[in-house]
Each structure stands twice: as C-alpha cells, then as structure tokens.
C-alpha cells in the first residue's frame, strides 16, 4: 500500500506545484498574438525570446544586481544576529521570564502590517540619512527578516542536544569556539532553511523599496516587476519572463543548499 501511495502522492504534488509554473515558462516565450487568456496549451507554437530581450534592453541586470546586494546584506545581518539571539534564548536562563517577553516583542513586530510602520520608518531612515541607499533598505528589511530568523532558528537550536556542547566546554572551549565548532554544524539544516527564507523575503520585498528608494537606478526587481501589470493591461509575456528570471538566483541557491538540508544528522561531527 505504502509502495503505491508514495509515487502517487509525489506525482500529485509535483503536478500541483509545477503546472502553473510550466504555464508561466510557456507564457514567457509566447508571442503576444498567441496569448489568448489561458488555453490548455502550455508551450507556444512559435516560441520567441523577444520578452527576455526587452527585459535586458530595459536594464534588468542593474536591478538584479541591486536586489542581489540588498538581499545578501539583509540576510547576512539577520542570520548572524538572529542566530546568536536564538542561541542565547535557548542556552541561558533569564531572570523574570525576560526571554519570553523578548520573544513576544519580536512576535509583535512581525505581526504589524508593514503599511503601519512604513511612514514612521521613513522618518527614522531620513534622520539616519539612509533614505535612497541600499544600506537603508537592508536595515529596514530587518523589520521583516530578523523576527523571522529569531523564531525559526530558535526551534532549530533547541533541537541540538546540549551534551556535545558540555563536552566541548569541559575540554576548555569558550563561547565562540562552542558556537562555531559545535552549534553551527549541528544547526546547519536549520540555518540553510532560514537563509533561504530570509533571502526570499528580502528578494521579493516591494513596499519599503518603493517608499525608501528615490533614484530609479537604485531600484530593486519587485518594483520593476510591478510595472508589467497596469490597470488597463497585463503584459503577460514580459511579466512571466521577469517572473522566471528573477526567481532563478534564489532557485539556484536553494538547489545548491538543499544538499545540506537533506543530509541532516549525517553532518554531525563524530
């Protein structure tokens, strides 16, 4: 029974998740004349590269680069800061349940709709002279990514048995050594998953990029993507082309990192 169920389940899941994606890819190569709503046909009879060429002519690479810089910066900060915070919350005893208070505060921040914080945050960045800069974006994205990373890493760090660390401690390893030699390797699958998610959040963020960046050449991809759906018309070809193109870097990253995800406990140092 299980032998039948697994292939069936996997097939269904793959179909559900990939059919719309396939349609997106097909549409990215579809000449405008062939696009009539959505026929059942996935692949155009006369595929064209014209949508991709249009994107490159319009300077998609510059925006791709901006997005890359901002998301890498954002992720680097969130992942490292979030990791040590999560570690502290799991491994140390706090007086008066301060750790719980901290976590609730973090949760509260994550719950706020970004629209509400946008205007005051604009003023904060303005005061710091960080409007219209990538550094300002990386900083403001911490509002999304840092709470996310803390909560995620918390549960991964908690899964790590303390014995190994205690052993290392007895051998004279200090805090930094324990973190780098014992905790980071054991938390690797969690760190990888968190990294992918944090990267994604920053990669696709729209609102803060719109409000905090003024110079067009500094814009990130999501804002460019938004220009393909106007209220009168959706430019399906270029929209799907940019959709596919902009997801590539994150997909490659995820593909590369999934090895770590799937290795699991095999990574633990013996």
């Amino acid at each position: 029974m299980t032998r039948l169920l697994r292939p069936l389940g996997v097939t269904l899941a793959v179909l559900f998740f990939t059919l719309p994606t396939l349609w997106m890819l097909g549409t990215a190569f579809k000449p405008a004349a062939e696009y009539i709503g959505t026929s059942l046909v996935f692949w155009p009879s006369q595929p064209t590269f014209s949508h991709f060429i249009q994107l490159f002519d319009e300077g998609v690479l510059r925006r791709l680069f901006n997005t890359l810089v901002v998301s890498i910066g954002t992720t680097a900060v969130s992942l490292s800061v979030g990791f040590i915070s999560a570690y502290a919350l799991v491994r140390y005893r706090f007086p008066a349940r301060l750790d719980h208070a901290f976590l609730l505060l973090v949760l509260l921040i994550k719950t706020l709709p970004p629209i509400v914080v946008a205007i005051p945050l604009y003023r904060v960045l303005n005061a710091l002279n960080l409007l219209d800069s990538h550094l300002g974006l990386m900083l403001s994205y911490q509002v999304y990514t840092l709470p996310f990373c803390i909560w995620m890493l918390l549960s991964f760090v908690r899964q790590i048995p303390i014995d190994l660390e205690e052993a290392a401690s007895l051998e004279g390893a200090g805090l930094v050594q324990r973190l780098l030699r014992v905790v980071v390797p054991l938390a690797a699958p969690g760190l990888v998953a968190t990294l992918i998610f944090a990267m994604l959040l920053a990669w696709n963020e729209f609102l803060f990029a719109l409000l905090f960046i003024q110079t067009p050449s500094q814009f990130t991809l999501p804002l460019y993507i938004a220009t393909f759906t106007t209220e009168n018309q959706t430019f399906w070809g270029p929209l799907m082309a940019i959709g596919a193109l902009s997801s590539l870097p994150v997909l490659l990253l995820a593909g590369y990192l999934q090895k770590h995800l799937l290795r699991g406990f095999a990574m633990s140092p013996q």
Partner: peptide, 30 residues
C-alpha cells in the same frame, strides 16, 4: 523534484497572483 515543489515560494507574490488570476478567469482561465 524537491526544488520543483518548493519553486512557487521563490516567485514574487505579484507574479504568483498574476498566474492565478489568469488560471481562475471564468471565461479564459486554465
């Protein structure tokens, strides 16, 4: 198959919503 199944989450929400807007259209939808 794993990357294929997690691909949707890599997409920008706008692109994702647009795909489904086309798919859910009453007359022309897939």
């Amino acid at each position: 198959l794993l990357p294929l199944c997690i691909y949707p989450m890599m997409l920008s929400t706008l692109v994702c919503s647009s795909i489904w807007k086309a798919w859910l259209h009453y007359d022309f939808g897939w």
